[in-house]
Amino acid sequence: MILVQLVTDGLLVGAVYALLSSGLTLIWGMMNVVNFAHGDFVMLAMYVAFIAVTTLAIGPALFVPLAALVLFGVGVVVYYALIRNVMRGPMLAQILSTFGLGLVLRYAMFWVFSANFVSLPDTLVGGVLSVDGLRLQYSRLLAGVVALLLTAALHLMLTRTALGSRLLAVAEDRTAAMLVGIRPDPMQALAWGIGAACAGVAGALIALFFYISPLVGDSLVLIAFVTVCLGGFGSVPGALFAGLAIGVIESLSSWFIGAAWKDVVVYGLFLLALWVRPQGLLGKS
């Protein structure tokens, strides 16, 4: 029984990791840019949810789309204002610019909200589903279900729609895409918008069961990078599987070895997995 609870807890945490990773893997796969500000996008979304709940008194059915919309805007603006230019610079400039963007966002939030921790009321998506002694928090279930839907939607969009083909074409070869009449800038801005919107959905949902602070991205996002890497760069379903796997491994190793050691186990297995499959579980070599 305890094993079932551990595995389900792990899967639910893993779904959160997958949720966190979806936007990251999209931007990574589309543009070969590592967005180090991703955790701070998630943090922004959590504050959007917090402001929406405290000032507009709206529920998750409204503030999750709202956060997605706000972050979509942030993503597009960031692309045109920053990324488009640094894409022409060396790799290091790309890395440091998103890193710097993250710091700006984080310390701007320190400025506005101070260092205090805040939290959404636990009654928004309260309650626990209890089956045979198995306890599942509704807020986490919601995050898990949305993670699955979001992954499916992103995957279908990329593989089954004309828009997806255009996005992939620009990612594959910018010049060739231009030759067949695709304007790369709007496509890449769209990729950033969608990627940031994914972070928006993730942040708003995670805010339901996590604390909110300007540094919260740090606690959450490192594992998202690992998830993306393990899943295969740019592979949306890969991020889902990797997220779930990491969640379950963390949960089991916390129980059997000790919580202080779970990172050792996760990162150890991660290195081993990359040694065997450097392209990630579902990545193309």
Partner: peptide
């Protein structure tokens, strides 16, 4: 004795351990 790392992302397993 239950230990964990600072600013951890999840403590479900630790709480489960205490509960058990």
């Amino acid at each position: 004795d239950v230990s964990y790392t600072v600013s951890t992302s999840d403590v479900s397993a630790q709480v489960l351990k205490l509960k058990q």
